[in-house]
């Protein structure tokens, strides 16, 4: 007789795009609410956003909600949304001075599929749409939108 599977309601994931260039990372913690099939998450990102004759630092926090279709587990197809806020800091390394601080606020929607290839390892590719607005100290504010593609690797616990 097999042992009933334990429902794992927490996940910790690393965003692969955020590690592009091995200059940063974004980590997402999710808590699953089985009765609603909802995963509510909070994320934090820190990455180097410029180099060469400049140094750029980007740090941000985000909130996500994901609704899993047909399953009362944190795997399978889902649709979701997110909001985030990033602070962008740019330093001129030649003249040794900070150039500007910018704030980016974004909101996005996505759908994806989370699978569990081995034990409690989870892999989550997703695509979506996003709108964000940059508030800069010198340039006029700028609202833009675009397509997004994400890939997360994490662990259920």
């Amino acid at each position: 007789m097999s042992t009933p599977a334990i429902l794992l309601t927490h996940a910790l994931s690393l965003s692969i795009p955020s590690t592009d260039g091995v200059r940063g990372a974004r980590v997402l913690y999710e808590q699953f609410l089985p009765e609603h099939r909802l995963a509510i998450g909070v994320g934090a990102e820190l990455r180097e956003s410029a180099m060469g004759d400049y140094t750029g630092i980007r740090s941000g926090v985000s909130g996500t909600v994901r609704w899993f279709w047909r399953r009362a587990t944190m795997t399978g197809w889902y649709v979701g949304g997110s909001v985030y806020a990033d602070g962008d800091f740019t330093h001129d390394d030649t003249d040794h001075r900070w150039l500007s601080t910018a704030l980016t606020l974004g909101v996005g929607g996505e759908f994806g599929y989370r699978f569990q290839p081995w034990r409690d390892l989870i892999v989550t590719p997703c695509v979506g749409l996003e709108v964000h607005r940059d508030f800069a100290t010198r340039m006029p504010d700028w609202t833009r939108g675009g397509f997004t593609a994400g890939l997360e690797v994490g662990w259920l616990f």
Binding site: S15, P17, S18, T104
Partner: peptide
């Protein structure tokens, strides 16, 4: 990169 995802179109001067 934007909030842990790849965003398109978003060029390096953007």
């Amino acid at each position: 990169g934007a909030d842990g995802q790849w965003e398109l179109p978003l060029t390096s001067i953007d």
